[in-house]
């Protein structure tokens, strides 16, 4: 269904552009406190860079390096980070997802602690959104077919 399509121009342009796109995605995630951005947007840009790679290069070769199993682990990891932060807040004696509980661990200003908690869960959301985009794209384009070596 999907054939190998080697095009020098497309592959060279992608090789130059993909690191820049990924760098911009990390900027959008990390700078979400001070400018438009955040976990959802940055995760979408990061996922788009991987999808560009899958379009431009041989899809089987990419899938062997970025396999389904690793992708599913990433999907679960983001939700896990989010829920774990909430649980830590309970263990430290405050309500679920009340980040001011982290003041016991990091003794700085309470507003700064809450900004830190926000950053952690933004990273979790970004990981999940990136992996979900790549996973849905891979499953839809390849009809969910996996050869034995890829899984």
């Amino acid at each position: 269904m999907i054939r190998l399509y080697n095009d020098l121009i497309i592959q060279t342009v992608c090789r130059i552009m993909i690191p820049l796109i990924q760098l911009f995605a990390f900027y959008v995630i990390a700078h979400g406190h001070y400018s438009p951005g955040g976990g959802f947007q940055g995760g979408c840009i990061l996922g788009a860079s991987f999808i560009l790679m899958l379009i431009a290069y041989d899809i089987n070769w990419i899938k062997r390096r970025f396999s389904e199993n690793k992708n599913v682990i990433l999907i679960a990891l983001g939700v896990f980070i989010y829920a774990l932060v909430g649980l830590l807040c309970i263990l430290l004696g405050k309500e679920y997802l009340n980040y001011s509980a982290f003041q016991k661990l990091i003794p700085i200003d309470i507003a700064r602690v809450r900004a830190l908690g926000t950053l952690i869960i933004e990273i979790g959301v970004g990981i999940t959104v990136m992996a979900v985009m790549v996973s849905i794209f891979l499953n839809l384009t390849t009809f969910g077919k996996h050869e034995k070596g890829e899984v």
């Binding site: 955040g38 959802f40 959104v129 979900v132 985009m133 849905i136 499953n139 839809l140 009809f143």
Partner: peptide
Amino acid sequence: MLTAIVVMVSTFGVALAIIMMLYK
């Protein structure tokens, strides 16, 4: 709406997957 956009994308993905199975 930021959250609604993400729900939109995920419902679109699931709907396309179901349609692919129906076509098969």
